[in-house]
Amino acid sequence: MNNLAQESIFFGMAISLLGYEIGLIIKRKFKMAIFNPLLIAVVIVILFLAVFHVDYETYNSSAKYLSYLLTPSTVCLAVPLYQQLHLLRKNAKAVILGITSGVIISLTSVLLLSKLFGLNHQQYVTMLPKSITTAIGMGVSEEMGGIVTITVASIIITGILGNMMAELICKIFRITEPVAKGIAIGTSAHAVGTAKAIEMGEIEGAMSGLAIAVAGLLTVIMASFYANLM
């Protein structure tokens, strides 16, 4: 199986899309947040690779074409944002203050919890950019001397968790304004969370996309200050 997978340039993408299709079917049947199509797809692919002894590198050599589309897709997030620009103008103050306080809460909570759990400096700076989009987070972690692979892992787990829990958290905290939902999801769970925000509605999706960019940039600015605190 590994040989076939190595030869094939479609294996990785096909198995990923198959996993996602199965995820969609299971989600439609059970309608529970835990049955998240992305999570199911990841689990199915990991199981498949383990059972048929295909290593990650082999899988990724053909699955990487999916990741390749991430940059143009992020660029496209500007389109719904543009279409909701009137909402952004109307709520500019709430949006800017909301994202800024979200970034401060994120960095501060990582600081406090790192102290509580007795992490060392390197582990602490590794976790600092966990809420922002992978590409920026990797750069921030590297700059501060963090362990980049763990940063990437934390960012992705954060995203999947945010994607799964977004609806529940909005319900518990009684967040009903679509603009506030989008800002909350994008600030805390970057692009993976935004995928859920887009499902929730056009306004949620557009605001979440905006929050990815703004939260990412603010984290770049504030992280070096926070890095000196522990």
């Binding site: 979200g102 809460i105 787990i157 958290i169 009903t176 805390s188």
Partner: peptide, 30 residues
């Protein structure tokens, strides 16, 4: 080796950041 503290940090901060950011944004809008 550090899965427990890191897992706890991820779960707690994700919930806190999402909840509070939404609350604050909604509060200002209203």
């Amino acid at each position: 080796d550090i899965i427990l503290p890191i897992g706890a940090i991820i779960v707690i901060t994700t919930i806190v950041v999402m909840g509070l950011t939404g609350k604050i944004t909604q509060g200002i809008i209203r």
